[in-house]
């Protein structure tokens, strides 16, 4: 305290009163506590755990998806597509504002704001800023296909069965 007093005295050339130092310390203390309480409130309302679904899940054997299949798996919000022996898992969540796009033979269409995508999920019209993401597809040892929504892959990178 007295060090601080002396330091300020030297800097400004004028003596700093005890009252001023105390007032300064008190204001800083109050201001600091306000900041700390705001930050801790933000920390508090940010959930540490969520109850979402697992990002990796099995969808069944390749035989369940004959060539020409284009279906949406509702619970997982993923469309499974098979052309010949090539397969892909494409997200059905619109990249615009999160509505679920409809799956048709010609592509995908969003009912909310009219975004349209081609068969591979590339944007062909509307406000969507990005193509629909593709997810990694793999064959688990038990013969079932597995989708990992945690891993986005390049569009057009098909999985061959």
């Amino acid at each position: 305290m007295s060090d601080k007093h002396n330091a300020q005295e030297v800097e400004s050339g004028e003596p700093v009163s005890r009252r001023k130092v105390l007032a300064w310390l008190t204001s800083m203390g109050l201001f600091g506590s306000a900041i700390v309480s705001i930050v801790s409130n933000l920390v508090f309302i940010k959930p540490r755990a969520t109850y979402g679904k697992p990002t990796r899940f099995a969808i069944g054997t390749p035989e369940q998806f004959p060539p020409g299949t284009r279906i949406a798996l509702g619970d997982q919000k993923v469309a499974v597509i098979r052309e010949g022996d090539k397969m892909a898992a494409i997200s059905v969540v619109c990249t615009h504002l999160g509505c679920i796009v409809g799956v048709a033979d010609t592509g995908f269409a969003c009912p909310c704001h009219g975004s349209r995508f081609d068969q591979d999920g590339n944007v062909t019209g509307g406000p969507a800023p990005k193509p629909l993401p593709w997810y990694e597809l793999s064959l688990a040892p038990n013969g079932e296909l597995e989708v990992d929504k945690g891993k986005e892959i390049e569009s057009g990178k098909w999985f061959t069965v």
Binding site: L42, I45, K46, P47, T50, Y51, G52, G98
Partner: peptide, 13 residues
């Protein structure tokens, strides 16, 4: 968005 929803999608939270 995450603070508002308390999750990654609209649900119970």
């Amino acid at each position: 968005r995450f603070l508002l929803l308390g999750d990654t999608a609209v649900g119970q939270e």
